[in-house]
């Protein structure tokens, strides 16, 4: 520690608390920026942002992204990366749509198809990355190509699913009590969410618990932080990496179904660029690409920040499509530089 920060450090030590670690600092920065952004939107833009429904809409739109980003964070914590998730989401959507409309399948079968695709992807990619020690980037790149290609091979044209049982499931609305608002006519409108949001929130909570309080979760951090010392601690590094990739792909399958529930159609162009959004959300949420640092809550906030900024950009009238991309990129740039500064500060 530098002498200048001695007093600050001493003050913290008296509270028997280690000074804010990288992980917590990055998380705090993310949450603060998200809150400032959202409050700023409420104050300066008002309108839609004042309603709770706006937040729920973001959640509904992004439920698939939340799930994939959580899976991505798991892989990134162990020091890997998986860019096949967007392709898997598209493949799951298309396969489920074909299963429901052309093969005479039912809803439980389509769910099994979604999970099966995710599982198969996870097993293959996990095996190649963990046991054959091939770079995760190149494997998941091939995985992405494969998924995108397979999607068009399964069915080449986009179409809407007309299965009734599925439509009923798709339109299920879960009313959130007490969060509604009155519309212009003075009628009270309930705020609602859909099933995808429930799945996404469940995933976030489960993974948070797993990473924080289970042996496996701690093994993830250990492997990502330093795989050599993790090996010496008796952690099965290969198996841990395998499980991380397995979970990421399985979650991509789940996310595919959540996305399918939201859009209700199959199309080869679904979820294009979702892998990059997932990586960006994880980074914004404070997950370090070098591995060992990351937090599921941060990732969740990262997704919300990403979509809030998109919402803000479109509501302040910068409707030209390019501004969204440019602001998201600028935000990513900002967070990357913050991360870089925060992590290098420690070494000096």
């Amino acid at each position: 520690m530098a002498t200048s920060s001695k007093t600050a450090a001493a003050a913290k030590q008296t509270k028997k608390k280690v000074s804010l670690s990288d992980q917590n600092l990055l998380l705090v920065i993310t949450i603060v920026i998200f809150l400032v952004m959202y409050l700023g939107a409420i104050i300066f833009l008002g309108g839609g942002f004042r309603n709770a429904q706006n937040l729920f809409n973001i959640l509904m739109q992004q439920s698939a992204l939340i799930i994939t980003a959580c899976g991505m964070s798991l892989v990134m914590i162990t020091g890997g990366i998986d860019i096949s998730v967007g392709g898997v989401v598209a493949l799951v959507c298309m396969s489920c749509a074909v299963c429901l409309d052309y093969m005479g399948g039912n809803v439980p079968l389509s769910i099994l198809v979604a999970l099966g695709i995710g599982l198969a992807y996870g097993v293959v990619q996990g095996f190649l990355v963990a046991y054959l020690e091939i770079q995760p980037f190149i494997i998941s790149l091939a995985g992405m190509f494969f998924a995108r290609g397979m999607t068009t091979i399964v069915h080449s044209q986009p179409f809407n699913v007309e299965n009734e049982a599925f439509a009923a499931l798709k339109n299920t609305r879960i009313i959130v009590p007490g969060m509604g608002n009155t519309n212009r006519l003075g009628n009270y409108v309930d705020a609602y969410i859909n099933i995808g949001v429930i799945i996404a929130l469940l995933v976030v909570i489960l993974l948070f618990v797993m990473l924080r309080w289970t042996k496996l979760g701690r093994a993830f951090y250990a492997v990502g932080g330093n795989s050599q010392s993790a090996l010496m601690l008796g952690i099965n590094v290969k198996r841990t990496k395998f499980i991380a990739h397995l979970m990421c792909s399985l979650l991509a399958g789940v996310a595919g179904y959540a996305f399918f529930l939201y859009v209700g159609s199959g199309s080869p162009s679904h979820a294009s660029g979702m892998e990059m959004d997932a990586i960006a959300s994880s980074i914004i949420g404070g997950t370090l690409l070098t591995g060992g640092v990351g937090n599921i809550i941060g990732t969740f906030v990262g997704v919300l920040s990403l979509s809030t900024i998109q919402n803000i950009v479109s509501s302040i009238g910068l409707d030209d499509a390019w501004w969204t991309g440019i602001t998201v990129a600028a935000m990513l740039c900002l967070f990357l530089i913050i991360q870089s500064v925060v992590t290098s500060r420690k070494k000096d």
């Binding site: 190649l128 046991y131 054959l132 020690e133 091939i134 190149i138 494997i139 790149l141 091939a142 995985g143 992405m144 190509f145 494969f146 995108r148 290609g149 397979m150 068009t152 091979i153 080449s156 080869p268």
Partner: peptide
Amino acid sequence: PSEALPAYKAVVVIVLVVLSAPV
């Protein structure tokens, strides 16, 4: 079809990468 091309490419790439993996 050009959209399905990536799937075939991916298979070729995986075979090549697996064969050239040090392990």
